[in-house]
């Protein structure tokens, strides 16, 4: 038994199978009208994934997510690093970030839609905002924790401030940045789904609520499974990447990874 649980990937697979089994059982035993059995929902999976329009919708969602996420990284990592290395920059940005932090980014959708319309721009912007904050925060913490002595020796070797930031601070802060990036990835997916649920024009979130409105419950659940799979694949993929990039560091603490929506 202990040996079995040590095979990587097996326990989550068993857990997923267990969840599906529990779902199937609950649907049959309790016969809730809003809970179709698992097999019925799973049967919808290939239907959705081969339907051209649905597929395009899902791919559109993913594209917006990737674009918003990429822009956020490019913006947030340098800002966080600079905040970590300069008290002045930190003092400048911190209160502003503190105020923005508890605002649900997807909740800005209606206002941003007023300005930018319901198209890609609004949704991408919202994802950008959602991802930026945790990445800034963790890059800031990472840069702040860089040992002063490392920088002194670098300065003594004749590195200028900019080189120190890119060649010393950035790699040293990378493990912590990765924690932020992981949180950001989770948030990108959440913000994507939520903003589409609020804007209701296209995308995965829209498919969900359309199906709900038309009482196609199997489609609702199948879409949830698709989003869940997407989340899991992203998470596992990122963990692989992280392990590869910062193999020398301690594993990321998972609390931070799930933290802050």
């Amino acid at each position: 038994m202990t040996r079995l649980t040590q095979i990587p990937g097996l326990p989550p697979l068993v857990a997923a199978a267990g969840l599906l089994a529990a779902w199937e059982l609950a649907a049959r035993v309790f016969d809730i009208s809003g809970l179709p059995p698992a097999h019925a929902a799973l049967r919808e999976l290939p239907v959705i994934l081969t339907d051209k329009e649905s597929l395009l919708n899902i791919l559109d969602s993913i594209r917006r997510m990737v674009v918003g996420f990429a822009f956020a990284l490019v913006f947030a990592i340098p800002v966080g690093l600079m905040m970590g290395r300069s008290r002045l920059t930190a003092a400048f940005f911190n209160p502003l970030l503190m105020i923005i932090y508890p605002v649900p980014k997807a909740a800005l959708m209606p206002i941003i839609m007023l300005w930018l319309g319901v198209g890609d721009a609004s949704k991408t912007l919202v994802i950008f905002l959602g991802v930026s904050l945790p990445v800034i925060y963790h890059a800031y913490q990472g840069a702040r924790a860089v040992e002063e002595k490392m920088l002194w020796s670098a300065a003594a070797m004749g590195m200028d401030a900019r080189a120190r930031l890119t060649r010393i601070v950035f790699p040293a802060a990378l493990p912590e940045i990765m924690v932020g990036v992981r949180t950001g990835l989770v948030l990108a997916l959440i913000t994507m789904v939520t903003s589409e649920m609020i804007a209701r024009k296209q995308g995965v979130g829209d498919i969900l609520f359309n199906a709900l409105a038309m009482a196609q419950y199997e489609t609702v659940y199948a879409t949830i499974v698709i989003i869940g799979l997407l989340g899991f694949v992203i998470d596992v993929g990122f963990e692989r990447l992280r392990a590869h990039l910062v193999a020398w560091a301690e594993p990321a603490h998972e609390i931070a990874a799930v933290g802050s929506t």
Binding site: G231, F232, I234
Partner: peptide, 20 residues
């Protein structure tokens, strides 16, 4: 393992099921 599977799932996607 349950947490491993459920934690990366965007919970908001479950909202329609919860409504149902």
């Amino acid at each position: 393992p349950l947490v491993r599977v459920l934690a990366p799932l965007p919970k908001v996607a479950l909202y329609p099921a919860m409504i149902l």
